[in-house]
Simulated assay, not measured.
Amino acid sequence: MAAPSAGEIGLVTPDEAWRMALSGEDALIVDVRSRAEWTFVGAPDLGDAGASIAFVEWTQFPGGAPNPAFVETVERAAAEAGCSRILFLCRSGARSDAAARTMQARFAETGRAVACFNVAEGFEGDLDADGRRGRRSGWKARGLPWRQS
């Protein structure tokens, strides 16, 4: 996967995100869903893979207010992971797109060479014919490792 051009974000599938996280390409996955989603829906399981993941709410639960510490928390996680690529993941790809764009602008503003990517389809993906997620597309539907607490 090529890095996005300056000021732009990249777009990857869940499978590509998984491969990037495992490949040693200095990639960090940032799951921007809420604590409730991580707990009740599940989360990517990278434990055995040795890959890095950070859980940072884009909006706070309950209520959906923007997380005022989002930018600085992601910056700290990126520095701790020593990554040059960040893969943003949410339920279906909308919040993660906004988060990736926000962080790409921040890294450009501060002169840091970090490429931000949105994980298309997200963790649960699109609704299926029965109005349910997690079956048609997304991290779970593609059979990538995940866990539920």
Rank of each mutant, 00 (worst) to 15 (best):
M1V: 00
M1W: 03
A2Y: 10
A3L: 12
P4A: 06
A6N: 11
A6G: 12
G7P: 02
E8N: 14
E8I: 05
E8H: 14
I9F: 12
I9H: 12
G10V: 06
L11E: 14
V12H: 04
T13G: 08
T13Y: 06
T13I: 12
P14V: 00
P14E: 01
E16A: 02
E16M: 02
A17C: 03
A17F: 00
A17W: 00
W18T: 05
W18I: 05
R19D: 13
R19Q: 15
R19E: 15
M20H: 10
A21N: 05
D26G: 13
D26K: 15
A27L: 04
A27R: 02
L28F: 01
I29V: 12
V30F: 00
D31F: 08
R33N: 12
R33I: 10
R33V: 13
S34A: 14
A36T: 11
A36F: 12
A36D: 11
W38M: 05
T39I: 09
F40K: 12
G42Q: 10
A43I: 12
A43F: 15
P44K: 08
P44D: 07
G47W: 12
G47H: 12
G47K: 14
G47D: 15
D48K: 15
D48A: 15
D48W: 12
A49M: 11
A49V: 09
A51W: 02
S52G: 10
I53W: 10
F55G: 05
F55M: 04
F55H: 09
E57R: 02
W58L: 00
W58Y: 04
T59F: 13
P62F: 00
P62S: 01
P62D: 00
G63E: 13
G63M: 07
P66K: 11
N67S: 00
N67H: 01
N67W: 05
P68W: 03
A69N: 07
A69F: 09
F70D: 01
F70M: 03
V71A: 04
E72S: 11
E72I: 07
E72H: 11
V74Q: 10
E75F: 05
A77Y: 10
A77P: 08
A78T: 05
A78D: 04
A78Y: 07
A79T: 14
A79P: 06
A79Q: 14
E80I: 08
G82F: 06
G82Q: 08
S84V: 04
S84Q: 12
R85H: 02
I86L: 04
I86D: 00
I86C: 01
L87A: 01
L87Y: 01
F88S: 02
L89E: 01
C90K: 04
C90A: 08
S92W: 06
S92I: 09
S92V: 07
G93N: 01
G93W: 00
G93F: 02
R95Q: 13
R95V: 06
R95M: 09
S96H: 05
S96G: 05
A98H: 15
A99E: 08
A99D: 11
A99M: 14
A100Q: 09
A100F: 07
R101M: 10
R101G: 06
R101L: 07
T102N: 06
M103S: 06
M103R: 09
M103T: 06
Q104I: 00
Q104L: 05
Q104E: 14
A105S: 13
A105R: 14
F107I: 04
F107Y: 06
F107P: 00
A108D: 15
E109A: 14
E109W: 09
T110E: 05
R112K: 08
A113D: 13
C116Q: 02
